[in-house]
Write a protein that binds this DNA or RNA. Sequence first.
RNA 1: GCCGGUAUCGUCUAGGGGUCAGGACACGUGGUUCUCAGCCACGGGACCGGGGUUCGAAUCCCCGUACCGGUACCA
Length: 513
Amino acid sequence: MRVRFAPSPTGHLHVGNARTALFNFLLARHGQGTFILRIEDTDVERSTRESELAIMDDLRWMGLTWDEGVEVGGLLGPYRQSERLDLYADYARQLRKSGHGYYCFCSAEQLDADRQRMVHAGLPPKYAGTCRSIPPADAEARVTSGEKAVLRLRVPQAREVTFDDVVRGPVTFHTDVIGDPVLVRSDGMPAYNYAVVIDDALMKVTHVVRGEDHISNTPRQVLLYEAFGWEPPTFAHLSLVMGPDHTPLSKRHGATSVAEFRAKGYLPEALVNYLALIGWSPGNEEEVLPLAELARRFELSTVAHSAGVFDEDKLAWVNRHYLKAAAPATLVDLSLPFLRNASIVVGEPSPVTRDWLQTIVPALASSIDRLSQLPERLRTVFAYDPVSTLANDAIGREMSEPGARQVVAALAADLQTAPRLTDRDLFRAAATRVKEKSGQKGKALFHPIRVVLTGEAEGPELDLLVPAIDRATELAPARGLQSVTGCRERAVAFAAALQNPHEGTKGTKGTKS
RNA sequence: GCCGGUAUCGUCUAGGGGUCAGGACACGUGGUUCUCAGCCACGGGACCGGGGUUCGAAUCCCCGUACCGGUACCA
């Protein structure tokens, strides 16, 4: 089995195309197939080298590596259409010789007028066939004398073309509605319908899996295979991906390219997993499946027929799963661009910082949707607002109990008189006091004390936090992060706020960074 | 206009002549938790419409409707 993904390098990799690439990849990996990457850059106007590189970068990021194609090579290359021009020319000659192809000299204006006339008459708007009957010798002569011409395929009349689509079953078109398609443009470049057929045939592609937008091109391509006497491959047309309003996914729906989702902090596994779920289901009720598992279960014939709406909420849900499951080192690697962007980390982190990040990032990652939210989350480790904390009913209730006030008062006293306790000593002292004074209530009391000491308003466990405090100074305070060295001031302010709830709510505001 | 495709909760889907039409996301309620999130439990929510075929249709057939794609010297 040989399959291919054949993007035009005219922009970023769209999630719809990424899904097509994924399904091809899954099909290849499911069987012991070959996945080919071919670049369709015959539209010289719009194709760019940057797009080509960006597309390959996105594919690799998703883990969709190709066995044959651009950059990795292979026996049936070249894999860039712009490097196969002589091949197309050879086969064009062959078509003219066999009579399946013929030169057409019609002007754009004439073609346009013909089309208008047909539409008005309620007829299918196809090429009128004006140049069909020009004797080949005359046509050749006109071309050699310099006249511009395109090469068209002579579509047989009054018959049907049927192909068996793996996802939709048999699809039939009548040739009466198919105009003779342009194979070679007047500038000598091959047209899509022509180049794909030559390439798929020469690259021995067995399964063509592509978007539904190609379904009506397929009969023309089948006819071309016939003209060459080749066996057509198996076709499968995937339904399209829509926006929430059920129109084709576009920029006004927000992010549409793989690069954008990547920039928003979605993990590659999550995007891949989610994309696979649009239009395909593993059959049972499992949904969170990594790439290898998707490949193991994938079945082209069970792909849905209808278009699917891209739902970012669900993507975020899938992402959370992978965020929680990711190995710390991997997570830190993926987070680094976001941390750098927020100036939390500059350059390569030192081993100590890395270590610290590996401790703290996984803990925080379990409560975010996307990596881009991480810097903000990380900031809360060091920024603390006593006012909003006390505003919480549960905490407020607990803090108002006599035992609690006693603990905090004692702590406040400690803090104000202690000469130079380290943060860790402070924390331990506080923990001890909580224990002896309030017994079981201590659990809730850890909250204010912890936030006093660290500013931590999140949920990492004690053991995690103590080393975190120790290492926090690794991060440069100047980069917008308040270092733990400020904890004394926060502690004092917090204690004051408790002793004097009314004044406190005003007076402590300034201590928040 | 013409040709082709598609149609199950708001969304992704499972199922498929007789089911309490199942799951997931989202949503709502409650619980747990040092806030949020998370997690747990519970809940509301669907077979596009009309005709057939049949004892019986969401499922099969036809018609309609809606939506999507194509109708290019773009892919």
